Simulated assay, not measured.
Amino acid sequence: MDARKLQSSLGVVLDNKPGPITFTALFRKLGAKPDRAAVLGQAAAAYFPRYGILENPLRLIHLMGQLTHESGAFAYMEEVWGPTPAQTRYEGRADLGNTQRGDGKRYKGRGPIQITGRANYRDYGKRLGLDLEGNPNLAADPAIGLRIALEYWSVNRLNALADSDDLVGITKRINGGTNGLEDRRAQVAKLKGWVG
């Protein structure tokens, strides 16, 4: 991926070597507060190459568009708990692995992709070598949350859908439906203008 258009859009040095400075600026431009943007930018510089995100501009565009939507422009690393009627339905959901009383709230959405459910915390914790099931709050740490999001992206083969510019397909794999599709589309369109 040629990063110079992105770097120009962000007002950073045009060295075509996107790293912490470029990604911190990107998270800032997408709405993250400075401290959070810096943590996310460092994590992105470390992990985006490992997950092939920089091999095609559409991968970066779709990943960041989805994460921007899911996290409320990186304002929320943890789902705000009401509980709402939808949140009460997390309790007892076998498909999420929520088998113990209180699992719905304990394993609520966290991180920029809003991982949800005991089974997902267990699975992604094992994949990353972290005890997310025993320490679910770890998923709300921005750097860890970004790693979870990237692992989720990889497991669900979302690079291939991004390469096809399949916004609806990606949204369904992340959300289970098309909730927030218009905002996701707007985020992706904005990023296309910046990245190319």
Rank of each mutant, 00 (worst) to 15 (best):
K172R: 15
Q100S: 12
G52H: 03
W153P: 03
A149H: 04
D131A: 01
P49W: 10
A143Q: 09
L96S: 05
A140K: 02
G129N: 07
R118V: 07
G102W: 02
M77C: 10
T68L: 00
P57W: 01
G111A: 12
M64N: 09
V80C: 14
K105G: 00
F48I: 03
A119K: 10
L158R: 00
D165Q: 11
D166Y: 00
L128M: 08
E151H: 09
P85E: 12
I61A: 11
L96R: 03
F74L: 00
A160Q: 14
P49C: 13
I115V: 15
E78V: 10
L60P: 03
Q87A: 05
D103S: 13
L128T: 00
I113Y: 00
E55P: 00
Y76D: 14
H62Y: 14
Y90H: 06
D141V: 05
L138T: 03
L63F: 14
W81M: 05
G125Q: 03
G109Q: 05
D95E: 13
T116F: 15
R101S: 15
L58R: 14
A143S: 11
K108T: 10
R173V: 09
Q87M: 08
P142T: 04
P49K: 08
K108R: 15
Q114T: 03
E70V: 02
T84Q: 02
Y76L: 15
S164G: 09
I144H: 03
G82C: 06
D141F: 02
L58S: 13
H62E: 10
G129Y: 10
A86M: 06
G72N: 09
N137I: 08
T99L: 15
G92W: 06
Q114K: 05
K105T: 01
L167V: 15
G72A: 07
A149C: 06
I170D: 08
R93H: 08
N137S: 11
G169N: 11
L67C: 03
L67M: 10
L128C: 06
G104R: 00
N159R: 08
G65F: 10
V168Q: 14
R106D: 08
L161V: 11
W153R: 01
R127S: 08
G125D: 01
Y124N: 02
G169P: 06
N98K: 07
G169W: 02
G65V: 08
T99C: 04
R122P: 06
Y152I: 05
L158G: 02
D141L: 07
T116M: 14
Y124L: 06
G169F: 08
Y121K: 05
H62I: 13
A86Y: 08
T99V: 13
R59N: 12
G104A: 07
G129A: 09
A94I: 04
D95P: 04
D131N: 12
Q87C: 05
Q87T: 04
L60N: 01
P57G: 09
R106C: 05
G111D: 09
L67Y: 00
N156R: 15
R118L: 07
Y152W: 13
N159A: 08
K172F: 04
D123E: 11
D141N: 14
G145L: 09
N98W: 04
E78Q: 13
R173N: 12
I113C: 13
K126N: 01
T99D: 12
I115P: 05
P112Q: 06
Y121R: 09
I61H: 07
K105W: 03
I115G: 04
Y152T: 02
L150Y: 06
G104W: 00
K105R: 14
